[in-house]
Design a protein around this nucleic acid. Structure first.
Lengths: 384, 384
DNA sequence: GCCGCTAAATTCAGAAAATGAACAAACCAC
DNA sequence: GTGGTTTGTTCATTTTCTGAATTTAGCGGC
């Protein structure tokens, strides 16, 4: 299966640096890029020419100003392709993604809890996935896997996954051995953040945090244009920050975690114990009709999430908070209270300074994010 | 006065990169450094030779293993000198610091609120400071100023300082014009963090946070070996995170900020309203003797600080939390409660994983930190 | 105490990459 | 058009980096 392996070492360190700068700061002209890399225009000219010839970069927009117009250089969406796999669903989706995050092929495979079996299933599903786009297969440059749990700093081993029942499973190595493709694994929320940085709304923002709102609450930070994983790979674990001191017990062993109040799962459970319907949207509708219990639940959840986001802003001063969600809505009571709580609990001089965006995403976020992890390593991981 | 200006441009970008890597990751052998910079041992050999000849680097420890022993390369403390000035005290201290943070000369000057006057006072005090060590004066490579307030991302202008009554004051430019020395200004807590990274306990830790416990509570993060300033220069503002929802009003306009409960000033004020002595150490003594009011105050403050630190750990997963303090103690009730609260409010699997160290520092921290800011820019700021 | 063994650091010719200055290209404003 | 302005390219020169061989400095076994 090693015919899919692409030789990344063909790129010089300057070429890699250029890709890194573009992926971190967005498209720019040769002159700007040269300056920001500390190189001469002459050098940049040659590097850009080579990367365009290789099909990795391309010229996009032309910016007209005083003198000769400048031509923006950007990653060529067709320049490299990545496979992304999500282990959060059964069947597990496999996607083939280009450099813009467009999904050009899609497959599924059964989910297993046995790492060896997963590696085998992937290596069996890959030919089917790649058969749809043989041109992309030749430019395949990496494979990423998103899972729920903690991943070590090398993005190689799953340190702990409650969902999968794993502890210290070197999944990336197993898959790399079976497929011959450069493989990295990552926590689900971090994968989504990478995907938003490379493909989404956060393209040219160097510092931002993504909060993924789902049955659990995940979070990941980009700092200085790179994914910040923390010293033990645990950066962004806002779900278990104490938001209601002496609140309800959490499955983590503490009390009053954000997860027990504001996650979709918690909201649904609170609704259930109040004898209300278990759909988030139904709750929102009831709240808008004046149902006191629904209002109470959504208000409590929204304030909790808003307070956590306020802490995030106070602590890290990001340029953007991006809340992604598959289910649910942020245009009702929950979203309004969340925004109000966030505004009310940051320093007044910072209130309104940090945009909080919410974004509805489809069910392929995790797989697309996993592909993003591979792309991020292709771009950033190559030269530290 | 430009005879003090040192030409940094004499260093090639590889030389600067080497200094940066050493300052971020601590001393290492040539072979390790070559690998981590992606260079050949041959290239490293030459670069190291040149920097040693320039007096910027030096060989320190010899590590014996299998084969030829490796020799660690480290910054030469005598390789560059920096001036640091603190605008937090009156009179304002000026220190001349070497690359190890050793203060080799010290002066004071009167404090003013007029930026022009400050620049003039500095340019007048400098010759006195440098006269004590003419050898160091020749190697002077930068000047840093620490102040209480917000500083812009270029470390050039003070965006806002309540203490000094400033708004958008381009202090660094003024000082640079008067003295001819490369000048940077910085927030007090961030300056302390830089100083601990370059000179202190956090030398070879890439990700850590410093909490400065004083009349106010400051905080700054190092991420990826570099000071993280945040998108508006506000990263680390933990003092105004809401720790007691609907708590006492804070001077910032919100309620229940950490600052209103756990700062030295807040503790003293709470003691005052309870009719107790106003010294922190006295409170600790009383608490140990069973004084209920003293216990209550210290317990409340300690839990609040501990909770904020737990959030910090959950959000950013740093490799170290370093609490610096000039006054006060952390070996009594306050410190114990703080540690317990911090442990109790992080994910159980992370509890105990993040060391929390407390460190008593002398009154020159701010000035030394300011010198560190200059050194940090000399090392890191040169090539982004 | 000598002989391999290992790994760090150095040397040096050849290869690779970056520079600088001059130049071509593309647009705006008048 | 024509002058002004800024981007991007070309190419000989200079700087920097690499690769392989070599030297250096200790370790361990006998």
């Amino acid at each position: 299966m090693s015919e899919f392996k692409r030789n990344v070492e063909l790129l010089t360190s300057s070429q890699q640096q250029l890709l890194r700068v573009i992926s971190q700061s967005g498209p720019h002209s040769r002159t700007v890029l040269a300056a920001s890399m500390g190189l001469s225009k002459a050098a940049m000219s040659g590097i850009a020419r080579d990367l365009i010839a290789l099909g990795v970069l391309r010229e996009t927009e032309t910016i007209y100003g005083q003198g000769r117009p400048s031509i923006l250089l950007d990653l060529n969406p067709e320049g490299a392709f990545f496979v992304g796999i999500s282990l959060l669903e059964d069947p597990a989706p496999l996607v083939l993604s280009d450099f813009n995050g467009n999904i050009v092929a899609r497959q599924t495979m059964p989910l297993s809890r046995d790492p060896e079996v997963i590696a085998t299933l992937i290596s069996e599903a890959l030919p089917k996935l790649l058969a749809e786009r043989t041109d992309a297969a030749r430019k395949l440059s990496g494979l990423g896997v998103a899972l729920s749990g903690f991943v070590d700093e090398r993005q190689e081993s799953c340190v702990k996954s409650t969902l999968l029942g794993w502890q210290d499973v070197p999944l990336a190595r197993l898959i790399r051995q079976k497929t011959g493709i450069e493989t990295f694994i990552e926590n689900d929320a971090k994968a989504v953040a990478v995907s938003e940085k490379l493909f989404g709304i956060a393209r040219d923002i160097r510092n931002f945090s993504v909060v993924s709102f789902d049955n659990g609450i995940g979070c990941a930070h980009f700092i200085g244009g790179e994914l910040y994983r923390g010293n033990h790979g645990g950066a962004g674990e806002i779900a278990h920050c104490t938001i209601e001191p002496n609140g309800s017990p959490c499955r983590c062993g503490k009390r009053g975690c954000l997860d027990t109040v504001a996650s979709l799962k918690a909201i649904k459970e609170m609704a259930k114990t109040e004898g209300l319907g278990q759909s988030f949207n139904w709750l929102e509708t009831e709240a808008s009709l004046g149902n006191a219990a629904a209002i109470r639940i959504l208000h409590r959840a929204g304030s909790a999430l808003g307070l956590a986001i306020a802490h995030l802003i106070q602590f890290n001063d990001p340029g953007l908070i991006l809340i992604t969600h598959v289910e649910g809505r942020f245009d009702g009571l929950f979203g309004t209270v969340m925004r109000q709580a966030a505004e009310a609990n940051v320093l007044p001089r910072y209130a309104g300074q940090t945009p909080i965006r919410t974004q509805h995403v489809d069910g392929d976020v995790w797989a697309r994010g996993a592909a993003g992890i591979a792309a991020h390593n292709f771009l950033i991981g190559s030269t530290p």
